[in-house]
Structure formats: C-alpha cells, structure tokens
Amino acid sequence: MSAVGAIVFPLARSYAAHAGIEIADDRLRADLEGRLAGAGNLSRGLFVGAALFVRAAAPVLFLGKPLGFSALSSDDREELLRRLQCARSPLLRGLYLGIKPLLTGLCYTPEFLKRAAEARV
C-alpha cells in the first residue's frame, strides 16, 4: 500500500463503518489506491494533512478527547463529524472538505446508491 494510502485507509475504514457501510478491507484498499493513483500531488498532500487532522487532532480540538477517531464512541464520532461539517473557520472547513469527497466517494459509490434505490422498491 502507498504511504498516502496507509495514512488515509484507517480513517476511510472507520468512516464507512460508522455509517454502517460494509466494504471488505481488500476492496476498500483497492478503491482507495485507485483514487489516489488518479489524484494529483496537491490532492494527495491535502488528503494526508486532512486524514491526520481528522484522525488525531480534531477529537482533541472539537471534543477535548485525546483519542484517535476510530477509538471514539459512536456518538462522539457522529458529533465530531457534525462539528467538522459545521466548522465556521474557512481553514478548518477547507481542510475537512479536502478529504470529504474522497471518503464519500469510497463509501457512497454508484453501486451502493443503486443498491439503496433497489432496496426501497
């Protein structure tokens, strides 16, 4: 796995698990590497900064809890993600929005959305 992938993967995995989206690790790894291969240097740099921020710094900054993202309780994770989404500081929001498309792109794939649509018919 690439160095960037190794930093982003744990976040992608717990982000998906938190939303109740089941993706096998192998599949997630492959999809992530595919996305990273298509991304330029600027995006990759942002992914690393944003992943480290969400995984390690944001829980302390927003919740006062010195725990990694994946070690947070489910409610704390939900609250942290909500606070990130609602951050008023353009810099923090910018950092977070740098990685949100990658995370949502990995979780809410067209296949997922088609399955969700079919499940409702």
């Binding site: 938190h18 939303a19 109740g20 989206i21 994770r77 939900e78 993600l81 909500r82 990130l84 989404q85 949502t104 809410y108 997922f112 959305l113 969700a116 499940a119 409702r120």
Partner: peptide
C-alpha cells in the same frame, strides 16, 4: 455527515 448523511443517501 456520518449516520445522518447515510440516512439521506439511502
């Protein structure tokens, strides 16, 4: 975000 986003995406 999170579970709330999932509910909307469903």
């Amino acid at each position: 975000e999170g579970r709330e986003l999932r509910r909307w995406m469903d």
